[in-house]
Design a protein around this nucleic acid. Sequence first.
DNA 1: AATGAATGAGCCTTCATTCAT
DNA 2: GATGAATGAAGGCTCATTCAT
Lengths: 209, 209, 209, 209
Amino acid sequence: MAATRARLIEAAGEVFAEHGYHSATVRDICARAGANIAAVNYHFGDKTELYLAVIRESVCSATDLVPEEIGPDEQLVAMITAMLRKMGLAAEHPGWHFRIMAHEMVAPTPVFARVVDEVIGPQYNRLRGVIGRIIGLPPGHEQTRLAANSVVAQVIFYAHGRPVIERLWPGFAMNKRTVTRIARHIASFSLCSLRAMRRARRPLKETTL
Amino acid sequence: MAATRARLIEAAGEVFAEHGYHSATVRDICARAGANIAAVNYHFGDKTELYLAVIRESVCSATDLVPEEIGPDEQLVAMITAMLRKMGLAAEHPGWHFRIMAHEMVAPTPVFARVVDEVIGPQYNRLRGVIGRIIGLPPGHEQTRLAANSVVAQVIFYAHGRPVIERLWPGFAMNKRTVTRIARHIASFSLCSLRAMRRARRPLKETTL
Amino acid sequence: MAATRARLIEAAGEVFAEHGYHSATVRDICARAGANIAAVNYHFGDKTELYLAVIRESVCSATDLVPEEIGPDEQLVAMITAMLRKMGLAAEHPGWHFRIMAHEMVAPTPVFARVVDEVIGPQYNRLRGVIGRIIGLPPGHEQTRLAANSVVAQVIFYAHGRPVIERLWPGFAMNKRTVTRIARHIASFSLCSLRAMRRARRPLKETTL
Amino acid sequence: MAATRARLIEAAGEVFAEHGYHSATVRDICARAGANIAAVNYHFGDKTELYLAVIRESVCSATDLVPEEIGPDEQLVAMITAMLRKMGLAAEHPGWHFRIMAHEMVAPTPVFARVVDEVIGPQYNRLRGVIGRIIGLPPGHEQTRLAANSVVAQVIFYAHGRPVIERLWPGFAMNKRTVTRIARHIASFSLCSLRAMRRARRPLKETTL
DNA sequence: AATGAATGAGCCTTCATTCAT
DNA sequence: GATGAATGAAGGCTCATTCAT
């Protein structure tokens, strides 16, 4: 049955999201999928190919759904919200994508280069474009890059640091309500500074350090 | 000689920073240290104790050097700079601390709780205190926490994401010049919004989303 | 094939009987079984589970075959004979059971308690019951216990002490002939005293020390 | 200091008696003796030589103290009592000798042959002599050997099986009172049958099986 | 007379993978 | 289309031992 293949991806998504590529075990994945231990090799060839399959499955447009016709400020807010939604409580595959990417950043796998080029890069480039328009600088400018980093950093933080946050912030939980509050904060925090950066370029008033 | 012990910590620091606790191997560490495979057991008992020794060695006050007498804005800038310095180009153990913490966040180890409570927690609390004073809210307030997260997220991003950044940003390198530019950007980006948060509390004008 | 599993138990029985749990090595067992080093883990989980499997295999009724309808004297003789047979020249797994139990007594393993409760205990209790009937005392009485110990001690001696006996008694060999002679001696030696104990309880004449 | 050497033997005696040669570790012994880990090799050469030193120390005549002038029955009783005393509650080195011998029987060490020839053999031979006189047969006769085995088996049982006995016999403890009761039982149990064996040789009455 | 440091062989176990069915 | 069995490399760790001091 192809059902086994699907169950394998489902189980692998959970395991890779939780433990990362290196610490995830084929045994665990097969067990959760109710499949034989040889199933991974049969359906995907090896552990790495399964990992790629999971990533392909999980990518699906964190930010792609954001329309391009609206203004850059609204696009940014929508992208931040979309990313956090995707991270925390997507209906399907909740949180896979960002948690896997978090692992990939910290402990690169054999497919690191492909993942960066095909998955992370495009989304980062789009974000740079939007931010460039907000601050009035080209996407490749250092200021644009630094600003894009600042925005994406705040989002990723909640993917990377969930266990730490939960330990340091009693009562914290990544539910729908929380995600909304976090998204609003990040958007507000970022836009405030980005607008100031634009104003600083048409010198009105200093907001320097 | 205690020299072997020191070489072991040195080698382990590099390996743990690069691969994280789980993927680091005692064999690799001993080989790099030019020591026997049993040296870790002799000097530290087991892999975990060596890991803790490395963390203890690497902690040494990312932010502790920042004086407490200066104003909160200056403290924040100094802390951001100190963290980035520590991360990127500390004279000794370059980058260990934050890279290890990055691994710890993404893939918690058996000593996760201790590390969070004894290492991450205190520094995070100090940061919350400073930010609370800037925005005029108590350290435990949700707004203070979210703001602290936004600041620390931007710093940590460069520890987590170095491999990705280097791939996406041609010519990027974590040298002294770059660190200074990044620090200045993060400080500027954050202070701009933090000050706006304070102003928003004494309602003058909306900077909302 | 389940053949490997069987060969593993066979080899493990020999090795555990010879060296005991602690000194037996998985490598040795796998080598004798013509199996890979990982075979034990695959078929049994770990060394301890293999050990339990061997014990389960070897238990099989040293004394269970003795019918309960015959008189207690005949039961005792039959039990002694059965135990010695089982120990020395059982068709299958010759001598495993008692030699493993000997190791277990002298150097308790992690499963000591289970082995005593589930394997040794029941057989010892049955023996106490029979001896209690012979000497006319309840099974829990100290005299009954001491007498049961004296009987079982004589049997076990040949399991424990085989190497020593073979060195001290030139020409000794644990063959069918010898076992018969030993069984007859132990039965005679024991019954003689047990009957005297019964007589002593209906005071006729002292046979004391 | 020679004091270290003595403490080493003292500690080694306890450890070897408890765990046997194979499972005892040099580390444990040195730690208990408050000595350096290299102390064993310095003072004794290696683990085996230390083991031999402990055995030499522990031998000291379980039965040698029994006078030879008294009648064989009295000698036997005295020997049984002496062995049990030595085993359970000797003032010095309590229980070393028999527990170590128990290990040696079940799991022969590299010095097995020497131990049997020099330590076990002589005592066994003396016992055979005494029993031979009781039953009126030469020491080398099969009946004499079997009878000697029956006696020594009962004594050794309490050295081998202490952990099992303690589990199967609630309230059992190897104190002075218990040792006396056990010694009296074994002597009574054995002498009763031995005397019957002598009578059987001068045919008066059957003591059949 | 004694020790802290270091060694290398070997322990049990776990891993991703392969093969015959 | 799928699997149970088996593999060999490598994992962390413990051991008795040795060496320079």
